[in-house]
Design a protein around this nucleic acid. Structure first.
Lengths: 236, 236
DNA sequence: GCCTAAAGAATGGCATACCGTTTTTTGGCG
DNA sequence: CGCCAAAAAACGGTATGCCATTCTTTAGGC
């Protein structure tokens, strides 16, 4: 346990204990420091974080509403286990959201915004050429999130972020073993070209197709059980 | 206080107090029995419902995560006030979701499903001809929700339901004063025609345009302050 | 008579206590 | 040696208590 601690020098008095606990748990779940299906005993976690059970329970409710944990009656909270069907369904919604975000992005973004996206794209390409999966993944996420962010639609941004977190683990694991790397890279090239041309419809379609291809065929969960490394989420 | 009470003969032992309280509050908020901006004092509400403050507070957290209430530090929970900008943004996302739902619906629904949609459509048309706004609204909602439901995508269904609840009040109020009723009706006719032809893209576009027209121009909140009548949500 | 400040009431945040259920452990029997 | 049952420990659900902050009301001064 290195990087993640509670009270991260944030506005200490502005938010309550519940938010801090919820953020802490969210980070750990998203980063896969807790395995899916793992129980989250409120007493134990509460004393680990030096809080009472009350804020811990309230944080569970928040995370449950966000789809990151599941609370069973009389059996408490467990880390949500995303089934293959869930992945398909959520990924589909994600692709739809990003498609529309791309359209709005083309209409709203400034030239500087587009330039920044291109810069990130070339950084990602560099990581790709170096076979640097870690940074490739990070930059890939950053680009997608940036496009959504540039849509300017806060509701869209929030829903996308929530959904994106639910898929973070499986997306990361997939990135580690995905062989068809160059295909995804080619698609990203096409996306960037359409973005530069400000062709909203085109970007949207490319993006949706891109996500569709990457995730529709999602097959078995299996996957290794080693925790993920500490990588920035960029999903704020 | 007539229609809405807690323990609605539901699976009494299956779900906890928190869920019952949350459902109770959700219904009242969606049905506009609580005004936007109104404070929700946990002590008072708790003793009204004959529960302690603990489940009440946990219910607040759930509703906050769903966007129905806002919790300010040291000032407690208030019913979420949806600004005109919020309405535009959320309505846009809703239209995108329904568009994709329509496409999936065309691909997945059985002929009986489509027939049922048409039946609802004609019921709605009857209500339209009778200038029966109450039933027109109810059936309109039912059709939209049914289309989403027929998409078969649970993630999509859930997100749509959550977002839809956030807009229920404003949608209902708008229905009461919207003059361009016949336009909406015509668009629904077109939607149904495309649905019968199973033209997914076409249905999606019509639907998105339909919602866009209805909501993009949303101007001022104002609106009367009388509570809404008791109408079935159909948003389960 | 109005504005302001201080005291008291109310409210939310967090901790803890109690109870019933669930899970685990252990001891006895097959 | 393994399986099952009973007891004990653990755990979640709810209620309640205490404290700090906020809101309200009232009393004093301008």
């Amino acid at each position: 346990m290195t990087a993640l601690t509670m009270d991260e020098a944030a506005v200490d008095a502005r938010e309550g204990l519940v938010e801090k606990v919820a953020n802490y748990l969210r980070e750990h779940i998203v980063m896969d420091h807790f395995q899916p299906g793992q129980r989250l005993p409120e007493r134990k976690l509460a004393e680990e974080l030096d809080v009472s059970r009350t804020p811990m329970r309230e944080a569970f409710k928040i995370l449950a509403a966000e789809g990151l944990v599941v609370i069973s009656p009389r059996r408490g909270a467990v880390v949500a286990d995303v089934s293959p069907q869930d992945v398909q369904e959520k990924a589909y919604v994600l692709s739809v959201l990003e498609q529309s975000a791309a359209e709005l992005c083309c209409a709203n973004a400034s030239d500087d915004d587009i330039a920044e996206l291109q810069a990130l794209h070339f950084e990602m390409k560099a990581a790709f050429l170096r076979r640097d999966r870690q940074n490739y993944f990070r930059l890939n996420q950053a680009i997608h999130n940036r496009i959504v962010s540039l849509s300017g639609n806060n509701s869209l941004i929030e829903i996308h972020a929530t959904l994106s977190r639910q898929l973070y683990r499986v997306r990361y694991l997939s990135n580690l073993k995905n062989e068809k790397w160059s295909v995804a890279m080619d698609e990203h090239e096409a996306i960037m070209a359409a973005l530069e041309a400000r062709d909203g419809k085109q970007v949207g379609n490319e993006l949706r197709n891109h996500l569709g291809k990457t995730w529709m065929k999602y097959a078995n969960p299996a996957a290794g059980d080693q925790p993920l490394a500490d990588v920035d989420t960029e999903s704020g």
